[in-house]
Amino acid sequence: MKTNPEEMAPFEVVADKIRRQITDEVLKKGEKLPSHRDLASTYDVAVMTAQKAVRLLVKEGWATPRGSVGTFVSSTWDQGGRPVSVEQLAQEVARLRDRLDSLEAQVNGRN
């Protein structure tokens, strides 16, 4: 993910600003995101750009669509204030495996 706004597409900039609102708890778990039109107005972008930003947030796990009701902040979070993805879980499992291997080596070294 790009972090420099100058290198980001407009929809990525909007998505990043919404992510920050989520991590800062301006937008809370389960809360409805503003409409595409409201986002477009707030961030001075086209409605299509706002739609693309929301689709990106859904893809990344930050938001969950609920049919015609709207899109809501995802309730699947870790303690760090970020959505938990399959990739993140796989990385955590790998880290825990490494730690377990290290502990087993220490225990076996003592026996």
Rank of each mutant, 00 (worst) to 15 (best):
E87S: 11
T64L: 05
E92H: 09
E25N: 08
V69A: 13
K2V: 08
P5K: 05
D98S: 12
T71A: 05
L27N: 06
V73Q: 03
E104Y: 09
K59H: 11
A53T: 01
L56S: 05
H36E: 10
Q51G: 01
A50Y: 01
E7S: 10
E7M: 13
V86W: 06
H36F: 12
L57A: 03
D101Y: 03
L56G: 01
T23D: 05
V13I: 15
A90C: 07
V58D: 01
G70Y: 06
V58G: 01
E31S: 13
P5R: 02
K32Y: 06
R55E: 08
E60H: 09
K52Y: 02
Q79V: 09
N108V: 11
K17M: 11
Q91G: 04
A46M: 07
L27M: 12
V93N: 02
L39T: 04
L89Y: 04
E92Q: 14
A46W: 02
G109E: 12
V26H: 12
A105Q: 07
S74C: 06
T64P: 00
E25H: 07
K17R: 15
G80S: 13
E104D: 14
E7T: 12
F11Q: 09
A105H: 01
A94N: 09
Q106N: 05
R19S: 07
T64K: 09
Y43P: 04
T49D: 00
K17T: 02
T42C: 03
G67M: 06
G80H: 10
A105D: 06
K52H: 06
L39A: 05
T3M: 08
T42F: 06
A90M: 11
F72A: 10
V45L: 04
V13P: 01
L89S: 05
K29I: 09
R82A: 14
Q88P: 00
R110I: 15
K52I: 00
P83D: 09
K2L: 13
A46I: 02
D38P: 00
E25M: 07
W62I: 03
K52S: 05
I22Q: 06
T76V: 15
W77Y: 14
R37A: 14
I18H: 03
E60T: 06
P34Q: 09
K28S: 14
A90D: 11
P10L: 01
K32C: 14
R97I: 11
Q21N: 13
A63S: 10
G80C: 01
V26E: 15
A15W: 02
R66I: 10
D98R: 11
D24V: 03
M1G: 08
L33E: 01
R19T: 09
M48W: 04
V86Q: 13
A63M: 05
R55G: 00
E60N: 09
P10R: 02
V86F: 12
F11M: 10
R97E: 15
V14K: 03
Q106E: 15
P65A: 06
F72T: 07
L103I: 09
D78M: 07
P65G: 01
H36C: 05
R66K: 15
V14R: 03
N108Q: 15
L57R: 03
T3F: 12
G67K: 07
A94V: 08
G61A: 04
D38I: 12
E12V: 08
F72R: 08
L100C: 02
S35I: 03
V26S: 12
E92K: 14
A63W: 02
M1W: 03
S68H: 09
H36P: 00
G81I: 13
T23W: 08
S75T: 15
P34S: 12
Q91H: 07
